[in-house]
């Protein structure tokens, strides 16, 4: 007569641990990423090795290759852009950081007067967004 062991009961998988891992991944991606409105056109920022870290917050002005503008993802005319930003220069906590996310091939005749105009309406911090170039 042959005796068989009764089959062992499998240990129940702790699904709680799996949830923990997934949850941590989710929270991680939500923390390290910054949700930003993308421009309605393609923008490839210039490459540079000397840029500094881009702080969060502020407003993003996108400039397309042809000079079209977008404010925080919405296409605007230049006059509307300046009109929308002018009141924010007098904000209680100071003017916001203005990030100019310009296409690498945009002509400076578009870009530089825009910087001047932004400074003219009271923006004290204007930065140009660049892509770090591993060189």
């Amino acid at each position: 007569m042959r005796l068989r062991r009764s089959p062992r009961r499998r240990a129940p998988e702790t699904i709680v641990a799996l949830i923990d891992v997934v949850f941590f991944l989710l929270v991680f991606f939500m923390l390290v990423g910054r949700l930003d409105a993308t421009a309605p056109f393609e923008v490839t920022p210039p490459l540079a090795t000397v840029g500094t870290d881009l702080p969060a917050g502020g407003v993003t002005v996108s400039v397309s290759e042809t000079g079209a503008l977008a404010l925080d993802g919405r296409p605007v005319s230049r006059a509307a852009l300046l009109a929308a930003l002018r009141p924010r220069a007098d904000a209680a906590d100071g003017p916001p950081l203005v990030r100019i996310n310009a296409h690498a091939a945009v002509a400076l005749r578009v870009l530089l007067p825009l910087v001047t105009a932004l400074e003219g309406i009271g923006m004290t911090t204007v930065v140009l967004v660049v892509t770090p170039n591993a060189a």
């Binding site: 949830i19 997934v22 991606f29 540079a48 000397v50 911090t125 930065v127 967004v129 660049v130 892509t131």
Partner: peptide, 27 residues
């Protein structure tokens, strides 16, 4: 777990990870 996993996959698929720096123009 299903919901969390779907959220995770959604964020991973819809987001583009850009590494951006800046050069000050007006300080």
């Amino acid at each position: 777990v299903d919901v969390l996993l779907i959220l995770l996959v959604f964020f991973m698929v819809t987001s583009r990870y850009l590494n951006l720096d800046m050069i000050p123009m007006v300080e």
